[in-house]
Structures are given as C-alpha cells and as structure tokens.
Design a protein around this nucleic acid. Sequence first.
DNA 1: ATGGCTGAGCTACTCAGA
Length: 258
Amino acid sequence: MKIISWNVNSVRARIKNIINYIKDENPDILLFQEIKTQDENFPYDDFKKFGYFSYVFGQKSYNGVAIVSKVAIKNINKNFIKDQSNQSRIITGEIEFKKKKVELINIYVPNGNPVETEKYNYKKDWLKKFVLKIKKKLSENSNLLIAGDFNIIPDEIDVYDFKRYENDALGKLEIRKKFRELLNLGFKDIYRFKNKDKIEYTFWDYFAGSWQKNYGMRIDHFLLSNNLVENILSININKKPRSKEKPSDHTPIELIIN
DNA sequence: ATGGCTGAGCTACTCAGA
C-alpha cells in the first residue's frame, strides 16, 4: 500500500499537477496539507474520476487538510486536538491493514514565524497539545501513522544552511525537541531511519532560485509507531513534482508498507 | 537577504507562507 504526504499549497491551484502525479504514481492514499479552500469548494469530482473518496477539513484561504483515498477510511476525526485558533490543521482516520487497525494522523503544524510573537507561542502550544494527545492515543492503539508538514527541521543535516535556521521557528532547539519527544514516545522518523546520512529535502522556497540551487529543507515527515516498522517496504522523497510548471513549494514524500 | 515568489480573496492590496 502506497501512502503519500504532500503540502500542495492550494489544492485548486494545483489540481492539474496533482492529477498528473496520480497518473504517474497511483498512490492508494494521499494526505494533503494547505489545501487553502473550504470543504464545499474542494475538487471532489476530479479525484472521484480516478477512484478516490475525499475526506476534507477545509478552511477559507488558509491551512486545510484532507485525506483522499481508494481504500475505506473509518472514524474520520477533525477534532484530534482542540485548536485555540480554530484553524484546520489535523484530520485523522482509520484503515485496516494486515489485520491491524492503523490510525492515520495527517497534520499541518503551524509555521511559527516570526519568533517572539503570538504565532510562535501558537506553534509551541499546538505541539505541546499534540504530543500529549499522541501519548494518550499510543496507549490505546499501538499502530499510529503520523504524516504531514511538521514545519520542523529535525537536525542540522536537514537544511541547506543550518546557521540561518537555528533561531528560526523551524529550527529552534525547543521546537526540534518536540520532534524528539514524539520519537521518544515510540516512533521512527522513517526517512531518517532508512537513510542515516542522506541529504534530501521536501521544501524549497519559490524565490531566489532556491530550487535550482537546492537550497531546501526536510520538514515533511512520516512517523510510524514502532509496532508498524516491520511493515515498511520503502520511503521516498519524489522530487519530480517540484520541477514541474506551477509547482507547490513542497514535494511529496511516499511510503510503501506491506 | 524578515522577503527577492506564490496563492486567496478580491479587484488594490493585504496576509500568510518558511
């Protein structure tokens, strides 16, 4: 089963790119972030034509997450944590996989810049609530898959120039510690677990020729609870969509489990 | 390099992204 995570930076502006990607890669489940649309304007029919059903937690203009799937998803939840700003940033659902009940947790973590503003506090509070909730969930179900745009650079090798980001909301130690806290609950950062020293990125800024210069960062992640690690077949950052016309600034990360 | 692009909402320009 192929599950992919992609911050599409507007699902409507990106629909042609997304459909072309589906034709090339034929994923079973797509976890989208930053769909930037309300539920009623989501392009359900475009996905239906290819056999996907869409579960949408949208928001006007900003944020928004969705699960688009060929396989049945049960118990969709849009209230995984209480978001004090009422922003649409988490959607969860359950699949049956190899007789395991696996909970998919699709997240779009707040950016948090600039630091020392309410935006940064919001990110810290959000992550604090999220880690607490994940700890509780893990005690109920040992099969958790967390994927999405974490807006966290886990380590120095995960960005083209760490010095530029060590005081940024994506690279500050207290933020990176929240990522480590998650791992310490019993998760693997699957990309890093499979690629100990490899340098690859999932995001490149639109400006200053960042893509051409490979000035990127690895901020989109798949975390699997330890109970699911035996099911990993492969993990891949697919850079092709970032090279196309009118791309998202993020590129998909692809997990295959069996 | 605290914004050099990009998108939404709207129709001039702000807000947000990372």
